[in-house]
Design a binder for these strands. Structure first.
Length: 459
RNA sequence: GGCGACGUACCCAAGUGGUAAGGGAGAGGUCUGCAAAACCUUUAUGCGGCGGUUCGAACCCGCCCGUCGCCUCCA
């Protein structure tokens, strides 16, 4: 059973084969911690989580590295505005990032290297690039990468250098670059940088954005490594530049498979900080949604499709996932068996859907197919429950945990009202029974009259 | 201007040459004292439009319309 992933480098679904057996090196571009991550960012991190969980589901051992960009123009600006240190400024956003990650049940990466802690590794690469004549220093002390010295430039984004020059919006009067499309490896210190700088062999300054990923990926995963991911807007220039830096310096391939997730949109447009049309996970939670609802919403669309975020879609996802939890709760209370075939079919369909470039919508269809079979036949408790839990190793929807929570204990007084109602029903005093039912509903609970007797749960 | 993507039912969304997955909503039904919940059934001769290729097209090709992304920090 081959796993195929769409590789941005080849623009094909390539069969995935790691460099060393069952071990996979995965590098995912992480947050720039100048603010809270928005749910568009989280769509990408969720895609990466599904990718990683799928690999693990298929038996691979994944070393996952996610960088934290804790120095850039925006963090420096924030630091100056508040008159604090860079670390003091970024810390709360790093903390918030991890909180959101846990709320969404995104698996923790093996490493979260921070740019500010790896400046010396970046300097080392820049020195190699200078020695090789690929990078050059300008009068103000900044260092740029000369893209004409790297023949493969543009192989990821499929842009050609000549086309870039024609770009109407590139500011040609900025700095002293030899060419407008050359990019900064090292930015010489300027007054606006305040207390943010490193004294290095390259001079006083700070690293450019792209170099951190080249340095930290090599540090933790070596070169080449298997998989590198990010949002589509990272393809150019960020990832293109990483390739130029790493392959230019080391003289060998950087990454075998590149995967990129599409944008989350709002009102038909890309959700972004600069457009101001974004929501954070905190906004979603403030509206009363379980973060799992957003997680489900994201999996409802393929990662390479644009997904429009609406509150109506959230409502739909909320209903769907609530139904799934209810289903799990029912399974958990039953012990019948006899659906081996259906479980087997669903397991195969589920795996094949994911093996085909992480087709989560199709994988979910397999899950619902099993749900339907169970409902029709009215059997298949434990074995189906276990199958669902194994699917959840990839889905990460907390199915087992929520199955318990839907059968949560209700307060004694509610139980009392319920048994009183049952008494009234038995003596056919329906007026009294309905009054008691209204009382229970008013207390925030709902009654389900099943053939096995009534159940009460929080509304 | 260059490069690229998308347009599938009321909504969301798979499917990329063999006769339209799945979820939500709606409708009908089973169960129920009545409800609710749950469950079952059902809902696109059609996939932006017009041509073309093919035995056969949502899927391939061309043109057109519409929307969006990258080329600038961006997931």
């Amino acid at each position: 059973m081959a796993i195929r992933y769409f590789n941005t480098l080849t623009r094909e679904k390539d069969e995935f084969k790691p460099i060393s057996g069952m071990h996979v090196g995965l590098y995912t571009c992480g947050p720039t911690v100048y603010d809270y991550a928005h749910i568009g960012n989280w769509r990408t991190y969720l895609f990466e989580d599904i990718l990683r969980r799928h690999l693990e589901y298929r038996g691979f051992v994944v070393k996952h590295v996610m960088n934290i960009t804790d120095v850039d123009d925006k963090t420096i600006r924030g630091t100056k505005a508040k008159g604090i240190t860079l670390d003091e400024y970024t810390e709360p956003f790093i903390k918030a990032f991890f909180e959101d990650r846990d709320a969404l049940d995104v698996e923790a990466a093996s490493e979260y290297p921070r740019a500010t802690r790896h400046v010396s590794e970046m300097v080392a690469i820049i020195k190699v690039l200078i020695d090789k004549g690929i990078a050059y220093k300008t009068e103000d002390g900044s260092i740029y990468y000369d893209i004409t010295k790297f023949p493969g430039y543009g192989k990821l984004s499929h842009f050609r250098i000549e086309e870039l020059k024609a770009g109407a919006r590139v500011k040609s009067d900025e700095y002293e670059k030899a060419q407008v499309s050359d990019f900064a490896l090292w930015k010489a210190w300027d007054e606006v940088d305040g207390n943010v700088f490193w004294e290095t062999e390259l001079g006083k300054g700070r690293p450019g954005w792209h170099i951190e990923c080249s340095a930290m990926s090599a540090e933790y995963l070596g070169q080449p490594f298997d998989l590198h991911t990010g949002g589509v807007d990272n393809i150019f220039p960020h990832h293109e530049n990483e390739i130029a830096q790493s392959e230019g310096a080391m003289g060998r391939k950087f990454v075998n498979y590149w995967m990129h997730s599409e944008h989350l949109r709002v009102d038909g447009r890309k959700m972004s900080k600069s457009l101001g049309n974004f929501y954070t996970l905190r906004d979603v939670e403030a509206k009363g949604y379980d973060p799992m609802v957003f997680r489900y919403l994201v999996m409802g669309a393929h990662y390479r499709s644009k997904l429009n975020f609406t509150w109506q879609a959230m409502e739909t996802a909320k209903t769907t996932i609530a139904n799934l939890y209810e289903f799990m709760g029912r399974l958990d209370r039953e012990n019948s068996t006899g659906l081996d075939d259906a479980v087997q079919r669903a397991t195969v369909a589920f795996g094949e859907a994911l093996d085909d470039d992480l087709n989560t919508p199709m994988a979910l269809a397999a899950v619902f197919g099993l749900v339907k079979e169970v409902n029709i036949h009215g059997k298949g408790g434990r074995e189906v429950f276990d199958a669902m839990v194994s699917f959840d190793r990839v889905l990460g929807l907390r199915l087992a945990e929520r199955a318990k929570s839907v059968s949560v204990e209700v307060p004694e007084e509610i139980e009392k009202l319920l048994s009183e109602r049952e008494q009234a029903r038995k003596s056919r005093d329906f007026a009294a029974a309905d009054r008691l039912r209204d009382d229970i509903i008013a207390a925030g609970y709902v009654i389900e009259d099943t053939p096995q007797g009534p159940r009460v749960k929080p509304a």
